[in-house]
Every structure is written in structure tokens, then in C-alpha cells.
Design a protein around this nucleic acid. Structure first.
Lengths: 248, 248
DNA sequence: CAGTGGTCTAGACCACGTC
DNA sequence: ACGTGGTCTAGACCACTGC
């Protein structure tokens, strides 16, 4: 059973998407919503906090909440998994392991992954049959066996690891920039050497903060873009840039 | 005066960064924290929710919270403003308007910005004296006069617009990808034509959802990377990728 | 089983916007 | 002045973890 505030959030979301609360209009007051749903104001606040974090509604102290957008931005939702992202957008996705081997951890890898031997995997991913992504992933040794058990042409490694080993990718840190294609990248992706690639480097951990993988993913330019929505109110990270905590 | 929960969050954050609560250790229970700070449990929960959203701590029902990371990831905090990001990282930043003119809105601009004439600005931004960013920004006409009043070499337009017009950039939607440098980009940034650039396209609105600007920013490769931290629990957008639950 | 976080209630006061 | 959202309190019950 979903929590009360989740059901209220879902109803409000449906009302927004369905046009009951058009973009630009005011949401009913928290007191009104509490009365309508026979819930305490705190519960209603939890519900609208969900919508605010999604960027659907804005808020200012003293004024009614305002509906900001109708469409859902799912884009960063699938940040962890290329396959899950592609599927939820209706694309045909493929993958193939090019090379895979165990080796001792090098340089910062031991510290990052907390293991002294690692599993190194090079994968080529396709979208609608076109190669778009070269993945260089390094797995911690506690998960290596499970990764090796995954078929070479598996679509979603994330999904496979969840199914076979119960591993949930819970936290991620991502670094996005642009690089020029090297010889190997160029050959795999079918582009000229030096052409632009979007690089996503990430480290992923479980709930407990146990590192699972460290990956360097390179996307052919034009194939994929990352989208982010942020807001002063919804994302606590933003707050600090705005005003106070600077020189401290 | 900052809110109680913000001060508690700040103290806990300092304790984590300062090593009082090392990475991997358990945070004190909510009841303990409530007693220590003489606050209600709800207030403590607000505080730790801030830290969870920052990716500093994780949580699982029934178990103590766990410290996930020590360093602060402010990077996306300053996503809205190049100057604010650069300053908070201790960089010298500069800027120069290359071209600026009013013109009729083209194509999708009218719909995106909600105005039929726009102010088109081309800016070159520098970091430590090196050109790193070409900004092509289109402002809605209601803000155009305020933008034109900003000096051509102003460091932070965001700050200037807040100071002179009281405009707060509250919401943003961002699209990140890689492109090849065109002739103009290459000349301005001092790179070869065709070399990789990190492109950030964004639309920014006020609290009320009123569009302020639409911008196409291109960073020289190697000069800047965007960093994101996300988690199943802290970022509701992520949730949909993983599996079950909704709110938070 | 006891402890912990997740949810919910029913109040309260305050800061801010709007009129 | 009044309504609104922002904050805070002091309880309660439940689901889950860990022993």
C-alpha cells in the first residue's frame, strides 16, 4: 500500500497533467487540500513537496503555490542505466561486451572501489541498431562474479545484477564533460578521430554506500543529451549558491 | 536568522566533513539528535532530509542512517550562474559582451519565452584569463531593458539582474550534450574548428514560472565539467528508474 | 524483541503576500 | 487585516532491521 501522501501527490499530479490545474494557475491552499483529502496539513505538505521536487509546482511563502509545468521530466531518472533510460523512451537498445578481464586495481581505483582486484569491461551499446556509446566500466571484486555471469549481449546490466544478485544501485556521482574521440572510440562508434563525444564518468554505490562500479561512458555527439531540472526551493543544493554560505 | 533545521543540518554537515562522523559510520538516531539539539523529532528529520538530498547520508527504514560521503558537491548548485560557480570555487572570472541586439522572436522562441521580441546577446566568458565559454542568450522582452543596463564587462549577469531588477532565477531546465566547434566558436575560444565543446542549453524562469532567458552555452573541452549526485531516496526523479517507491 | 526510521495527526506561532 | 506557506512541537502507530 502506497503511503497516504504518495496517493495525494499522485492525484494532484494527475490533476495537473489532466488540466484540472492548468499551468500558471494556483493550487488550492494546503488547508483546502487537507480538508478535501481528510488529511493533516503535514501530510498534504509532504505530498506537495514531492511535486515541488519534481518541478511541477513552485512556492513562495505567503502566496499560493503555482503550477509550473505539465510534462514529466524523467530524463535524469534513468541516469544510472542506459538500457532503462532507452526503454522508457521507447528505443530499441542493444549491447555487446568487447573485452572483459580481471586485473589488479590501478592508481585511484583501489581507493574508489575499495577492492584491490577489479573486473574491467569494455562494452559497446547501440540505440536503434546504431552504435552510440562506449562504456568502460570497472567493477569492485565482490560483484565481479555476478557481472561475469551476465550474458555478453545483455541489454541491461543494472537489471541483471538486481535480478541475479539483488544488488540495487542506490547512489551515484556523475561527472559530465566533452572529449575528443580517440582511435579506439572512433572505430567503435563509426566516427572520425577527434570528433566530439559526451563523456559521463560515474561512480555508483549501494544503499549502504558500498562502491559497485566506476565507469567512463562516451556518447557519440548528437545521439544523447542529459537533461536536468532544478529549482531554488526543491533542490537543497541550490540554496547555498544563492545567498549566504559563501566565504565560510 | 536561519531556520532551526538548517542550523542542525549545518552542524551535522560540519561533523561529517570534519570527521566526527566518518564515512561509513552510523549517524546517531533521530531520538538522540533530538535530545542533543533539544528539538522535536520532526525538526531533526527535516535536517537529515537536507543531508540526504545532498547525498551525504543514506537511510533505510529500521536501520541507522549511514554516512555516505564527506566532500561537498556544490557543482550543480551554481548551475544557473557561471560567475557564481566560478567564484565559489575560487576562480577569477571575466566576461565580455561581443554582440547584443533586439530582434523579433524566431521559431520556437516566442513560445518558449512568451514574448514576440527578444534581446539576443553573445558573450565570451573567461576563467583565470582564459576564454572557456561562449554564451548565446535570448532574453524575454520584459527583462531586456534591465539586461541592456548591465555593463558589457559585468561578471555576473544573474547577480546584476537581482540587484537592479529584483529578478530571481528560480527554476531551470538544462540539456547537456557535446558538439563540434563552429568557425565562430573556434575563433572566440581559441581552439580548432571541429574540436569538442560541452554544450549546455537551458531555459530559466522566475518563481512564478515566468520565462526569463533561453541560452546556448558552449564550454571548451577540458575547462569545465558538470557534476551530479543522485540517489534513489533523495531525488524523486530518480525513483522511477529504480523500481518501486514514489514520494520522499 | 527492542530500536530505528517512515508516516501521520493536531495543534501552534511566525514571515510574507495580497488586498 | 487576513490568508498563505514555513517552521516547530509532542505526541502516536507502523514496518522494518538487527540482535
Amino acid at each position: 500500500m502506497a503511503a497516504r501522501y504518495e496517493r495525494i501527490a499522485a492525484e494532484l499530479r494527475d490533476d495537473i497533467v489532466g488540466g484540472v490545474h492548468p499551468v500558471g494557475s494556483q493550487l488550492p491552499s494546503e488547508a483546502d487540500l487537507a480538508a478535501r483529502y481528510s488529511a493533516a496539513r503535514g501530510t498534504v505538505r509532504q505530498a506537495v513537496a514531492v511535486l515541488a521536487a519534481e518541478g511541477l509546482v513552485g512556492s513562495r511563502q505567503g502566496a499560493r503555490r503555482i503550477v509550473l509545468g505539465g510534462e514529466r521530466s524523467q530524463s535524469f531518472a534513468e541516469l544510472h542505466s542506459f538500457a532503462q533510460w532507452a526503454r522508457s523512451n521507447g528505443y530499441r537498445v542493444g549491447g555487446q561486451v568487447i573485452a572483459q578481464r580481471r586485473r589488479p586495481a590501478r592508481g585511484a581505483e583501489a581507493g574508489r572501489l575499495g577492492s584491490d582486484t577489479v573486473l574491467d569491461v569494455l562494452r559497446l551499446r547501440t540505440l536503434e541498431g546504431e552504435p552510440v556509446l562506449v562504456e568502460r566500466t570497472v567493477y569492485a571484486d565482490w560483484i565481479a562474479a555476478a557481472v561475469e555471469a551476465v550474458p555478453a549481449d545483455c541489454e541491461s546490466i543494472t537489471q541483471a545484477l538486481y535480478d541475479t544478485a539483488g544488488v540495487v544501485f542506490a547512489y551515484g556521482e556523475h561527472l559530465l564533460d566533452a572529449v575528443a574521440a580517440g582511435t579506439r572510440d572512433a572505430a567503435l562508434l563509426g566516427v572520425r578521430r577527434g570528433s566530439p563525444l559526451l563523456r559521463q564518468r560515474r561512480i555508483t554505490t549501494t544503499h549502504e554506500g558500498r562502491p559497485v562500479e566506476w565507469s567512463d561512458d562516451r556518447y557519440r555527439a548528437g545521439s544523447v543529451a542529459f537533461s536536468v531540472r532544478n529549482s531554488i526551493g526543491a533542490n537543497p543544493l541550490i540554496r547555498q549558491a544563492g545567498d549566504l554560505r559563501f566565504g565560510a
